[in-house]
Structures are given as structure tokens and as C-alpha cells.
Amino acid sequence: MRKRKSFKKRDLLGWLVMLPTLLLFAFYVWEPLLENVRLSMFSAVRYELQEFVAFDNYIKVINNPDFIAAFKNTFSYTLWSLVIGFLVPIALGILISETVRFKGLFRVGIYFPNIVPGLATVWIWSFFFNPGKTGVLNIILSKFGIDPQLWLTNPHWTIPLIIITLTWKSAGATALIYMANISSISPDLYEAATIDGAGIRQRIRHITLPSVFSLAKTLLLLQIISVFQILYEPMVMTNGGPNNASISLMMLMYRYAFRDFDFPSGAALSVMICIVLIILSGIYTVATRKKED
């Protein structure tokens, strides 16, 4: 009986400690989420709900010609981010961890882009990829006798170039996380590998990469969720163009809510994005769990 009472006291104390956080989480996350689901099933005039329309707003969003383009582009953003952006922080983290001198300088250098405000970063890269003769990249290429390229106005290059911008902005912070994980690896493993005649490639392959694998799985899922909600990069750099070649689902939702003031349709699209992310997260979790087993 004493053990049960003491357990209940500890349990109650734990809930009391978590209570402020749970209340804030419910107020700022769950309540807006449920309200958003309710809004998506009503018609509205600006902020005033009118009548219950069930799934009519969802059907309206799906029938919008821009929806298919935004849906495809969002998955393209996600895939290109995995091709371009996922391995860059791992490579940076490993390379800097293997360096002997100027580690602090390199850490500051790769983290510096994260200090720059996001919109400023997008504007800088917009001028860099300017398709005219005044574009920085075209000016550099002209020194080598290469004609000016279209860059962001070329629908085949738009999404990869936006992902390069996003990678330049965020890779440094992620690389520091990998470096922190690598620094926690026991030096005895590297010493034993060196004694056995292993070179730098063998150490990275058999010690470093297996050690960061679990962290990489978590960051991969977070990257998918983050890139799937890409918004201001294509909005500022291309405004969704050319011809909807870079429009994303979040950008389409922004147009519904803040350009057309069609808040129920924007809410419906946001619920659909949430459902897609839940499905992707579930598939990823099941796939990685099976691999671990």
C-alpha cells in the first residue's frame, strides 16, 4: 500500500509539472487544429461561418486546376531535397570532424547562412539566378564565354535551384548536429581502427556512418515534413511560376486564405496536407522499423 501511495504521489507530481506545458500545447496546437477542421466543413464570408457543407470545400480544392500542379511540385521539392540537401550536411559534418586545424572557423562558416534572415537569403539568391545579363551567375559565366541562361524562368531548373537555396540556408545547422553526434563516438574505436591499418575511408564507412545512422533517420523525417510545407522560397523567387512550375501546396493554401479570402478552402487544403504528412510519416516509421528488425 505504501508503494502504491508513493507511486501515486510521484505520478501526480509529474502531471502537475507537465500541466502548464499540456495546457499551452492544447491551446496553441490542438484547439487551432480542431477549429481548422471545423472551418473546412463550413461555408464562410470572411471570418463568419455560414452553413455546414461537409466535404464540398475539399472537392472544390481537388477540382482546382492548380491543385494537381501544386501536389506534384510539392513531392518534387521533397525528392529534390533528399537528392541535394540530405547528404550535404552529413558530408560537411564528417569533413569538419576529420579536420585537425581551423575547426572553429569552419563551424562558424557553415553556420553563418543560418544567421541571415530567410527572406534576405531568398532575395540574394534571386539576384544570383537572375535570367538576364545582370544576373550574378550569368555575369560569371559570361567571363568563360557562356551565353546567359534562363535559370529560374526555365521550368526544368526552377525546383532544383530553389532547393539549392534552401540547402545553402539550412545545411550548416544540421551539419553541426551531425558533428555533435560524431564527437560523442568513443575515440577508442578510431584508435583501434587506426592500429588495424584502417584509412580515413574505412573509418568513415565502418565507424562514423553507422554511428550517425539513427540520427540521420530522425532528421530525414523532419526534413520531409519541413520541405513538404515549403512556402516563401517559391513565392518570393518565382511566385509559383513559370506557368505553375514551382507552385507548392502551401503556396496554394496561402492564395486561398490571404489572396482570395476563401478561408474554408484554405483550411480544407491544410487538413489535406496534414493527412498526407501523417501518412508519409507512418509509412517511413513502419519501413525503418522493419529494417531495424
Rank of each mutant, 00 (worst) to 15 (best):
L23P: 12
F128Q: 05
R46C: 06
R101V: 10
L92M: 01
T21P: 13
P89Q: 00
S126Q: 07
L23V: 14
L92Y: 09
L13V: 04
T99L: 11
G85T: 04
L49C: 13
F86S: 02
N114F: 05
N73K: 04
L12W: 05
F127Q: 04
G104P: 09
A120Q: 00
G14C: 09
G109I: 06
I96N: 01
A26I: 00
L33V: 11
S97D: 07
E31G: 13
I59K: 13
V17H: 02
L13T: 07
S43T: 12
I68Q: 11
Y77Q: 12
N36D: 06
K103I: 03
T78W: 01
S81F: 15
F102I: 03
L95W: 15
N73S: 13
K72S: 12
I96V: 02
P65K: 11
I124K: 05
P89E: 01
V100W: 07
F102R: 13
K72W: 11
P113G: 02
Y28G: 00
A70H: 02
L23A: 14
N57L: 06
F55H: 12
L13Y: 05
L24R: 05
E35S: 13
W123S: 15
S81A: 07
P65H: 02
R38T: 12
N57Q: 12
A69G: 10
E35R: 09
L16E: 10
A91Q: 03
P113A: 01
T74D: 10
N63A: 09
F42D: 06
P89R: 02
E98N: 08
G93M: 01
V100A: 04
V29Y: 15
T78Y: 08
Y58E: 01
G14S: 13
V83T: 08
P113K: 00
E51Q: 13
F67P: 02
V88K: 02
V45E: 15
L39G: 07
S40L: 00
I84D: 03
I90P: 01
L87F: 11
G118D: 04
L16F: 15
F106R: 06
M41C: 10
F127V: 02
F128C: 00
V100I: 03
V61E: 02
F75V: 08
S81Q: 08
L39H: 08
V100H: 05
F102K: 07
F86P: 00
V100F: 03
V116W: 07
Y47C: 08
L82D: 04
